[in-house]
Amino acid sequence: MIVFVRFNSSHGFPVEVDSDTSIFQLKEVVAKRQGVPADQLRVIFAGKELRNDWTVQNCDLDQQSIVHIVQRPWRKGQEMNATGGDDPRNAAGGCEREPQSLTRVDLSSSVLPGDSVGLAVILHTDSRKDSPPAGSPAGRSIYNSFYVYCKGPCQRVQPGKLRVQCSTCRQATLTLTQGPSCWDDVLIPNRMSGECQSPHCPGTSAEFFFKCGAHPTSDKETSVALHLIATNSRNITCITCTDVRSPVLVFQCNSRHVICLDCFHLYCVTRLNDRQFVHDPQLGYSLPCVAGCPNSLIKELHHFRILGEEQYNRYQQYGAEECVLQMGGVLCPRPGCGAGLLPEPDQRKVTCEGGNGLGCGFAFCRECKEAYHEGECSAVFEASGTTTQAYRVDERAAEQARWEAASKETIKKTTKPCPRCHVPVEKNGGCMHMKCPQPQCRLEWCWNCGCEWNRVCMGDHWFDV
């Protein structure tokens, strides 16, 4: 396979590697080409510095992935760790964990309700045991953590790749202090920090972006993250068709209702045909949960890209028209025109101005929308079919299609509260000796007794199943 190397943020060049090629071997190839010592090179990928003893497969490097290699003399205490030698983080029983690669970060837990604080980093599902597709590297999971809308060759929703760059020099040479644990960490600028490894760059702020994971991409090709779309790892039924499908869209209502993408497309087109989208002054033209839940309008309007190009163009047109109407304007009634106009409040005669090729020149009556006339309008008909009709959803289907309910059931079956801080902690095999993952707590306690870890627990039921 081919990976592209950008040395000291210059133009990239291809390097041929195998899945079992080590990072140090990659350094040696680059060092020979650039005429520099291999031990002064640092390989940066997806916000993480890659260790010498890791392989291309370990690092989730795919065909035509772009890695950054910078030349920086080692500072005291760094060289041993980078070589894969006596790194205290690798000691058996050590409590410190390697910062998780962005290629394996899962933010789907952050669609849980606000009262489930902490689960994004504490609760991990076991539903990723799908067998890898044919042709994928051994052991590589097909679980997708992110979804994007690819405006490039795909023109559809695709699995996405999370990447990070330095907000100062805009190069992907920043190593994160810690990985993101929720969508806010990724979507809110300057929320996460790190250290830029580019020479002479003092940058410390992280800037995240997404790429389409279905095809090789260049540095400049980015895609918009659709953070309401998630892999259906909890096997929730769709609120409309009641099938279990994946991926799904999880509405931001209190129940976190789930809808499959085909039904979401149908829901949007139906509402669009009836012009029953909601115009929100802050958000724009949007839709609420299909069950009509309060405070559930979709905030990231790129989710409506699921409509496809033709329907999305209609959505944008109707949204612009609705904006004009909300501002007190009118639409030209001549067939084939429909231009938005903003006449004076007491102006009865409205002319669709033909300047700049935008208007048709038609003069019409503001009251009856017919060709302009003197005197009273002959008839004014009330528009028919403008009443909002509820999208029919079966109550039982709505009850079963809740992301929140599956989460709470998982928590109930696989977790116990920490005796000190009461945060839910998952036990997935292993011994009875637990350690609270909350940095402010870190209590060592017994899963069996529910009390602080002691010699009695150690001698009596340390390794009970």
Rank of each mutant, 00 (worst) to 15 (best):
R6F: 05
R6N: 04
S9P: 00
H11A: 05
V15W: 00
V15G: 00
S19K: 10
S22M: 06
I23W: 00
I23G: 00
F24D: 06
A31T: 03
K32Q: 14
A38I: 08
L41M: 06
A46S: 09
E49R: 00
L50Y: 01
N52R: 01
Q57V: 06
N58R: 12
Q63R: 08
S65H: 04
I69M: 08
R72L: 15
R75A: 10
K76M: 15
G77R: 08
E79M: 11
A82T: 12
D86M: 11
N90C: 11
A91R: 09
R97T: 13
R104Y: 09
L107K: 14
V121D: 15
R128P: 13
S131F: 10
I142G: 12
I142Y: 09
K151I: 09
P153F: 08
V157K: 02
V157P: 06
V157D: 02
G179K: 06
C182L: 04
C182E: 09
C182H: 06
D184S: 09
D184E: 13
D185T: 01
D185H: 03
I188N: 10
P189T: 06
P189D: 06
N190R: 10
M192Q: 04
C196N: 00
Q197N: 12
Q197P: 07
P202I: 09
C212M: 00
C212Q: 02
E221Q: 09
S223C: 13
L226C: 08
I229V: 15
I239T: 06
T240K: 08
C241Y: 01
D243H: 13
S246M: 02
S246Y: 03
V250S: 02
N254T: 10
R256T: 05
D262V: 04
F264D: 01
R271P: 00
S296L: 01
L301N: 09
R305G: 07
E310I: 08
Q311F: 07
Y312Q: 03
Q317W: 06
C323L: 13
C323V: 11
V324H: 06
G336S: 08
G336C: 07
D346A: 12
G354F: 10
F362L: 08
G385Q: 08
T386R: 14
Y391K: 05
R392Q: 09
S407F: 09
T415S: 10
P419F: 04
K435S: 07
P439H: 07
P439V: 15
N448D: 08
C451Q: 15
R455L: 15
